[in-house]
């Protein structure tokens, strides 16, 4: 457990053990997914399920921290799995090389994951992802554009779902995204995922909006 000695100094052995027993499904291995995955592995998560059907391209390299030029053309989930196991080879990483187009895309997942990280890049798939959520699970949503982004926690019966919150969203094709925005939002998503795992979510019925341009952070009340 030396790898997590500094974590334990902060949150203690009990919570470190809880993380080891926890499983998170990360949907989308882009800028947000890479950051969330690496943070969770370094935090000590026991199992990750990575879902993405893309290959690494040159335009990914400005922000997707698990990939480099040698990975171009290769499967994102396979490369991510390889890199994450180099950080901690005692964890389990399940890879699903698939685009999220239907709730049926999740039927083969047998693992009882605790929560979902919505790191997708389009609302159609995000809404389908929300349908997968069970009552005993949570979903942390994150989205970014330019130098701003937002995060919230979704829980069935407690919060609105993503369709209710976002309504009629048209997806912008490849919006501007800079590394510091996506890495910051991804890190804040990680914090909220861990808050949920520790039983203290901070963004139930609240949308955190972060604007890097002047370091502004707002919590918008949702009902």
């Amino acid at each position: 457990m030396d790898q997590f000695a500094r974590n334990i100094k902060f949150w203690g052995e009990e919570k470190q053990a809880l993380l080891k027993e926890s499983s998170i499904l990360i949907a989308g291995m882009g800028g947000l997914g890479c950051t969330v995955a690496e943070n969770l592995v370094r935090a000590g998560i026991g199992q990750l399920i990575l879902v993405d059907n893309d290959i690494v391209t040159e335009t990914n390299l400005n922000r997707q921290i698990l990939f480099n030029q040698l990975d171009i053309g290769k499967s994102k989930v396979i490369i991510a799995q390889k890199k994450l196991l180099r950080i901690n080879n005692e964890i389990e990483i399940i890879t699903i090389d698939r685009k999220i187009e239907s709730i049926n895309d999740f039927t083969e997942i047998k693992s009882n994951f605790c929560g979902i990280a919505d790191c997708l890049d389009n609302y159609k798939s995000r809404f389908i992802l929300n349908d997968v959520l069970k009552d005993n699970q949570f979903m942390v949503h994150g989205g970014v554009k330019n130098d701003f982004g937002q995060i919230t926690t979704i829980k069935n019966g407690i919060t609105q779902n993503l369709r209710q919150i976002f309504g009629d969203q048209k997806d912008e094709i490849e919006p501007g995204i800079i590394p510091q925005t996506v890495i910051t939002i991804g890190s804040l998503m990680t914090q909220e995922i861990i808050n949920n795992l520790f039983g203290k979510p901070q963004l139930l019925n609240k949308m955190l909006i972060l604007e890097l341009s002047d370091f502004s952070m707002f919590k918008v009340e949702m009902k």
Binding site: G28, G30, G31, L32, G33, C119, L120, D121, N122, Y123, G142, G143, V144, K145, N146, F148, G149, Q150, F166, Q169, D171, E172, E174, P175, I177, V182, I185, I209, V220, E221
Partner: peptide, 12 residues
């Protein structure tokens, strides 16, 4: 009443 207006980020 309270109104909040924002363009959410859709990228990941």
């Amino acid at each position: 009443d309270k109104i909040d207006i924002f363009p959410p980020g859709g990228g990941g």
